[in-house]
């Protein structure tokens, strides 16, 4: 009896601090955001007026915000797809892609494994500034210098509204791939080696090894990656804000929900409206999370 009491006290003591912090700094701001979304608060007043659902009505006619939503939607589809395909390919080559006898990575795979992880180590802002230079439209740009030397005109990676979005996507993929190579490598390591060996003794080539062994056995990990990358696609902010021209431009061609929220809050000083956008984004994110958890229920392969 006394021991049970002691144990409960012990657990409570440990949980009290994190739960309090979580309530004060996570749950309470969320609730406040719902309230602010129904006011006309401009950030300086001590007495914002309650305006009901006005901000939400306004939001439906906001062309720029819906443009941002379509960009998030495009990222939601493309970012996980491209990243996972590339990361799987690399992870496979680094771990079981040697092709010859035995199971191992391509020559130098230890070195590549480290190199691929570099982008993940860099702060997002650093990556954004770095790529501003890489994408420079003159002969000091890392991509344009060789293009111009070949006689192909400079490509406006960030200043052409038709290309800028793809540049953003490219940078996000570049930064994300390294982490998922590591994640998938860990997944691969948990697959018994003898499966690969047995398959290659039976004459399976690299391609059939990949599609018949690696992918099915990694499916759980791929699903996790999909959810992570989906969330990354929904709350992308810093890359767009720092790297693109006019923070989401040119001509709103790269803007996303988070940048529109920031713009409305800290540039237009419409904190009420920005909170309404935040509430909408909250529901998009929650919706995605529920949907992906539902869809990803699938029988595990036991081995």
């Amino acid at each position: 009896m006394f021991n049970t009491y002691r144990r409960g006290l012990f657990i409570t003591a440990f949980l009290a601090a994190p739960v309090t912090l979580y309530l004060v700094y996570v749950i309470s701001p969320y609730i406040q955001a719902f309230y602010i979304a129904m006011t006309d608060w401009r950030g300086v007043s001590a007495t914002p007026n309650f305006v009901g659902l006005d901000n939400f009505v306004r939001l439906f006619a906001d062309g720029v915000f819906w443009k941002a939503v379509t960009h998030n939607a495009a990222l939601l589809v493309l970012l996980p797809l491209i990243t996972i395909v590339i990361a799987l390919f690399f992870a496979f080559l680094l771990n079981v892609g040697s092709g010859g006898r035995g199971v191992g990575g391509v020559p130098g795979s230890k070195f590549y494994r480290v190199v691929f992880f570099f982008p993940q180590v860099l702060a997002v802002t650093v990556v954004a500034v770095l790529f501003q230079q890489v994408f420079r439209p003159d002969d000091s740009g890392m991509l344009n210098a060789p293009l111009m030397a070949l006689g192909l005109g400079p490509v406006s990676f960030l200043s052409d509204p038709g290309i800028a979005f793809w540049s953003v996507l490219g940078v996000m993929v570049w930064q994300a791939v390294g982490f998922y190579v590591v994640l998938f490598s860990a997944g691969l390591a948990s697959i018994p080696r003898d499966m690969f060996e047995a398959a290659s003794i039976d004459g399976a080539g690299r391609v059939s090894l990949f599609f018949r062994i690696t992918l099915p056995l990694l499916w759980d990990t791929v699903q996790v990656a999909w959810v992570y990358l989906g969330i990354l696609a929904l709350d992308v902010f810093a890359i767009v804000w720092v790297m693109t021209d006019q923070q989401g431009g040119p001509d709103y061609s790269t803007t996303v929900m988070a940048t529109e929220i920031y713009r409305n809050a800290f540039e237009y000083f419409r904190f009420g409206y920005a909170s309404a956008l935040g509430v909408v984004m909250f529901f998009f994110t929650i919706g995605f999370a529920i949907l992906s958890l539902r869809l990803s229920r699938r029988e595990r392969i036991e081995y």
Binding site: Q32, I36, T47, I231, V279, M281
Partner: peptide, 23 residues
């Protein structure tokens, strides 16, 4: 610091002390 922290998924929500207080 709190404002920066709150920016991530719920940029609209400022921070614990977001709602203005009448003083």
């Amino acid at each position: 610091l709190l404002r920066a922290a709150a920016l991530a998924p719920m940029a609209g929500a400022l921070a614990a002390c977001a709602t203005p207080a009448q003083q």
